[in-house]
Design a protein around this nucleic acid. Sequence first.
DNA 1: GCTTCGCATGGAA
DNA 2: GTTCCATGCGAAG
Length: 766
Amino acid sequence: GVDCSKCARNTRAAMAPPNPVWSSAMHTTQNVADRKDNPVKSWRPPAGQISSQWRQTNLWSVSSIQSDLQQRLAYEFDRPSGSEKLLPGRTFIHAQERKFDDMHDRPTTPAGMNQIMRERDANGHGQPTNLDPAYSYALYHRDGPHPNSLHDPSHHGGENDSLSSRKVAIPDASTGVDAGFKLDSHHTAILRDDPSSLSVGLPSNFASSNGPKDHIRIAPSQQQTQMASSSLQKQFYSHSVSGYNEFQAQLRNGRPRMDAKARSQLLPRYWPRITDQELQHLSGEYPTSNSVITPLFEKMLSASDAGRIGRLVLPKKCAEAYFPPISQPEGLPLKVQDASGKEWIFQFRFWPNNNSRMYVLEGVTPCIQSMQLQAGDTVTFSRTDPEGKLIMGFRKATNLSSEQEETTKPVNGAPISSEANGKVSAPDSSPNAVVSRQNKVNTESKSSSPVEQATASKVDTGGLAQKEGPGTGQSSPGPVKRKATSVSQKIKRLRMDNEESMELKITWEEAQELLRPPPKAPSIVVVDGHEFEEYEEPPILGRKTYFVTDQSGSSCGPAQEISMEELAELIPIKAGLGGTKKSKTRIEADTIDASDGLDTLANLAILGEGEALPSQPTTRHPRHRPGCSCIVCIQPPSGKGPKHKQTCTCNVCMTVRRRFRTLMLRREKRQPKDTDSPRKKEPGQASEMLSQTVSGPLAASASATSSPQKANVNADGTEDMAVDHKTTSSPVKNHIDLNIQPERDDEQSPKSDAAGAARLLRDNPT
DNA sequence: GCTTCGCATGGAA
DNA sequence: GTTCCATGCGAAG
């Protein structure tokens, strides 16, 4: 049964954020014993409103390292700072203690729950009424019983009759396990708004119509239920309905999700300012579970935090409030999970310092590096319930979002830089998007074994560059001292980091410009009247692609080619034309691929057959639209497949002919001079070649664009080469067979392809 | 000579 | 004046 009077009596303490003084006399004896056994030499419990005397629950009893770790991970994050410390081995806590903590700390949404309320009255006394024993255990103990502990009678201690009697398993229909504390995805998910003032979900019959004054009892409309059921829509409920809206705004703006009490305990700089997106990102690891994430605190990394020492100084109050109590300077291992689901094990410890403590997390370097954090970035610590896992998020200082900036904190707001994790976090708030991301997160990495961690640490230490950049904000440049080699190494690392950062700092639009469709022709999918190219293969990273609106909307051809003047106008302009691919012809700023190929041919023609160029651009240019009939598109390197007709008058063919004639003429002129061996082209020649190569097709296309009917094609398709003969004075009198079968089909590489084409051009001047 | 560890120091809040 | 904490710094490995 539940003793409501005790509940009410202890509610104040239970609600005191974040580390209320637990002055109940019930722990006095234990406290004395604990103090006696406290081996800490130079530390005395600091006085003040935040007591450093910990009431340690059974969660911290240890029998093995692993169990110790697991249990400690289920630390109480709002544990009342009772005047005691539990001796190791204590396996029980008082029933009232558990009960009242449960009442106010643990969000609970058992199946069937359809109301959310905050058990709290104006005096801070909860007055739970109509307690249904069947749901009594749905009220979490604020000491953070780990699910394992929750369900493991041994952890609760059979000696505690009260506790045992209150342990009511609420089977989850879907899992068949005790899930009374779990959120039912079909009902309500609650994300606590702050570590100390917690939303408590109660079954409908739990709520009292005459309950505390500031109860929040939200009728479970279908809409609300659906909203809450989504991990995307995890709702924060505040003290009032208006407060709810306020918190909604806070979430969006990354403002601290704490109430006044909690704020009063922590310095503002440590208030968690996790945004919705960050929370969603963090919750990505738990897409299906009913976990809720409670932001605990955050800290901007100092230079020393992000340095190679691997020690992250924790704010004392935060460490004492949210991390497990430690009595030994050696501390204990703390398992922290990052947003990608990867688990890290840090050593949570402290140093005696001026009659106080200085808390640090040791071994954070691999994690910091994996997150690519540096001084000025912010790490956030959250906790999931009911798992009790520590979640470590981060916020890059460079991802400033102006609308989310806080005066108290220069770095804030932007969603967790997923790019740092290699994940794309589009600002899409649709559930599907998040589900997709979450699934991705789940499938990405879940390395959790310590061994793996150690391995990862080694790899990270050795393989990743240290981040010791000056950062922003309060970060300071690395100390210019000690060894010059160390400084130079740091400078090198910094330069590397900066270079990497520069490369990564591109906008989405800029990234789009660098993407080229894969060679395989896409299928066109029409969605809402818009055509989309659907590629089976990933895009290719390349140089910028510029888009030119095409009047006709057809595929590339002479009429669609862009003039040099047009291109010259386009190139300096940011390519903002690429919004939709429909009816656009893409032309690359680095010239058409065909020109690349032609340039290759030209070079090969000069150098002679078989002399390869250092790097040959491909003649396959996937930028051509589906249906493109140019030679590059329709003729594969092997020579198989559709071929251009001999009389083809497409721009490429025309250019190839023209270029070939020019090259052959040049070669003839050169051969009398140096007939011994082919030589490398000279710089001047190279530029000239490039100029011709670029101008050739473009110039041709310019005229073709302006007057497509100028193509000198006879009625039978035979091209009138008079123009070319005039302009080139080429000795080549006859047509070039562009479609001749290569000698070897195995020459399929771009290089060999180009060589083969050149050979074709040379050997088949007819 | 370098790194790590543990503590001390001193500026800032 | 007190406390916190970023970082310095010497000892040890």
